[in-house]
């Protein structure tokens, strides 16, 4: 098992680690946070629960900022007004992910990307999943619409939207 002639040292197996043949020091850090969402995010989440998307307007540059924020990063001024926007938009960019977070291959790849939301200013939108589409059909610029969870299942989270699907003809 040991190879003293190997100048790179001795190989260890996970079995040896588990059985305590080697000295192991372990520590599980306890790091827990409860981030205050603040004014803008709180309202955004409340409205998600209502099945609506809400933005903030900057009356200095006239942009509709989404997700909403209490100050405009371009003008460095407080934003002034709440504005409801639509739950439709266009795909800015997307990727099809064939791996999960542990880098294991998944059979049904995840379609994920950024949607610019109709009614908000340019480059203002939301990152989410796409579904009811195919590798062949999905494309940058594709019009899409949010598919919401039923009201009783919504909890004030980004996942109150299940995914975005292609916008159907004649639909708003």
């Amino acid at each position: 098992m040991t190879k003293p002639e190997n100048p790179r040292g001795v190989e260890l197996s996970s079995k040896q680690m588990k059985e305590g043949d080697v000295i192991v020091n372990k520590w599980d850090p306890r790091v827990k946070y409860a981030w205050a969402t603040g004014e803008a995010i709180s309202r955004f989440l409340e409205e998600m629960k209502n099945g609506k998307l809400i933005a903030r307007k900057c009356d200095s540059c006239d942009r509709i900022l989404f997700p909403p924020r209490m100050f405009c990063e371009e003008c460095f001024k407080p934003t002034t007004e709440w504005v409801y926007i639509k739950d439709t938009g266009k795909i800015e960019t997307y990727s099809i992910s064939y791996l999960d977070k542990d880098a294991r291959r998944i059979t049904d790849p995840i379609f994920v990307g950024v949607v610019s939301i109709d009614g908000a200013s340019e480059k203002m939108g939301i990152m989410h999943y796409f579904d009811e589409t195919t590798k062949e059909d999905i494309h940058i610029g594709m019009p899409v619409k949010a598919v919401w969870k039923p009201p009783e299942e919504r909890e004030g989270a980004i996942t109150d939207i299940k995914y975005f699907r292609p916008l159907k003809e004649g639909e708003e």
Binding site: W35, A36, T37, G38, E39, A40, I41, R69, M70, F71, F76
Partner: peptide
């Protein structure tokens, strides 16, 4: 406790006052 502001809003307030 500043639970009515998130960390960005807190920093914006400090920065706005200084500027």
């Amino acid at each position: 406790d500043t639970s009515e502001q998130n960390w960005k809003e807190l920093m914006f307030e400090g920065a706005s006052k200084a500027y």
